[in-house]
């Protein structure tokens, strides 16, 4: 685990701590190779986050999703027409294996509840919230912050619609909580999920994870 002892206080956004010296691409990827991530939800956010993390060198992931691939997912999620009907965890695992056969995956095809989040996510170096429902997001954030307080959590809120991609940012809300999104754009009638904006948020989350695991305390 990276050393978080020098994290800046949440109430001092003006203070920047020195970044650790990191020079070599190989060294960076070697660090990521030793880390693990638990991705809660592998839909629009999670499927794309997993691919980005794998391409960045992070080889150990737990993929969690109860759902199966639906035709309506193909407009933004990393699945293919011939995978319709498959469990999302298994379909994504097949794709990730094609990207890098050295990937090490744990697949959990369960509905997330307050009773199983800790069992599923404990042990990961970082937890990524990538579900769609607001109540599930709140449950995950509340449960992880309460029961796994030492594990960083990267969550997303506000990525629907056709608003500017520049409104999506990564913020640090608490010592171990990083929030990606514009905070307000929820999914509703006339406010759908576009692949471009979802992937902007997914890229923010993936990059926040990479920075955290490399020891950079600021998003």
């Amino acid at each position: 685990m990276p050393d978080y002892s020098d994290l800046r206080p949440h109430d001092r956004p003006d203070v920047r701590v020195p970044v650790p010296p990191v020079e070599l691409d190989a060294e960076l990827r070697a660090r990521l190779r030793e880390c693990s991530a638990c991705i809660l939800g592998v839909g629009g956010l999670g499927s794309n986050i997993a691919a980005m993390l794998l391409r960045s060198g992070l080889l150990t992931m737990t993929l969690v999703d109860f759902d199966r691939v639906d035709p309506g997912n193909l407009n933004r999620q990393l699945f293919f027409r011939d995978q319709i009907g498959m469990l999302k965890t298994e379909a994504l695992a097949a794709t990730l294996m094609r990207i890098d056969p050295d990937v090490s995956l744990t697949l959990v095809s369960e509905t997330l509840t307050a009773d199983n989040v800790v069992r599923i996510a404990q042990g990961a170096d970082v937890i990524i919230e990538a579900v769609d429902r607001a109540d599930t997001k709140a449950m995950i954030i509340n449960t992880v912050l309460r029961d796994l307080p030492d594990t960083p959590l990267v969550t997303a809120s506000g990525l629907a619609g056709y608003g500017s991609a520049n409104a999506i940012v990564t913020e640090r809300f608490a010592e171990r909580l990083f929030v990606v999104g514009d905070l307000t754009s929820d999914v509703r009638e006339g406010h759908p999920l576009f692949a471009s904006r979802v992937m902007v948020a997914a890229a923010h989350q993936a990059h926040a994870v990479i920075r955290l695991l490399l020891g950079f305390p600021d998003p």
Binding site: R133, A134, R146, S157, E175, L183
Partner: peptide
């Protein structure tokens, strides 16, 4: 004060309370 809190917790002088509502989409 930048740390998670339960809603039944009592506040203290000088505390900084923040409330964040996640919205749907993923």
């Amino acid at each position: 004060n930048g740390r998670h809190a339960e809603e039944d917790a009592a506040l203290h002088d000088g505390d900084r309370l923040a409330i964040f509502p996640p919205v749907a989409g993923g």
